[in-house]
Amino acid sequence: MGVYSKPVLFAVLSAAVILVGTVVTVFIPMLMPSTQPVSDYVKPYTAVELEGRDLYIREGCNNCHTQTVRPLRTEVLRYGEYSKPEEFAYDRPFLWGSRRTGPDLNRVGGKYPDSWHYKHMQSPQGMFEKSNMPPYGWLAEARLDTRYTRKKISILGYGYSPDEVSAQIEAYKAKVTDAAYESKQSRDEVTPEELRGELTEMDAIIAYMQKLGRDVKNLEAER
């Protein structure tokens, strides 16, 4: 009975059968630029934001937080403008998530001041008694590792020169360690004394939080 007594032919036929749907729904869209459009208003992550994003990945934040606002009335009311494909052009990997134990974060940038995030990361339960988010105080106790930042930026093709990467890191460090930093008090409360003059992992993940949805909000403000 033909193919049912020829295992190699059977395997080839199976491969062909599974590849039809794969080619049509995955490979062909990948070759169409319209699947992942690129727009000028969406800016790549800065060096510190990217390091923050990698910490978001390391801690598995995507297991509880989504980053896609769906075009539904109550969702737009709760989070803001729904997510557009061009916003994700620089996202490798994507971080849309699949489960909302915590709220969506795609529009969290600019929603709260840095001080809010420092306090909340340190003790979510201190801010919201009924929250079940793990506390992330340890992020403030670790110096941000920037040894690979230049290599990461070059792999991702964000187009910054090595000097620009260093300048971005120094600029952000200068911002959060400045005596006039508006969230200085909260930052000092969570950061051990010896790291207050350094960039910590907490600083970076908060920089990333503030980037999420910022370009869309800037575009809205311009209009």
Binding site: T22, T25, V26, P29, M30, T35, Q36, P85, E87, F88, A89, Y90, D91, R92, P93, F94, W96, K152, I155, L156
Partner: peptide
């Protein structure tokens, strides 16, 4: 880092 970006990465991942 994933070879694919954004929407394509999502599409490949859920396939």
């Amino acid at each position: 880092y994933s070879l694919y970006a954004g929407v394509n990465d999502a599409n490949v991942e859920w396939w």
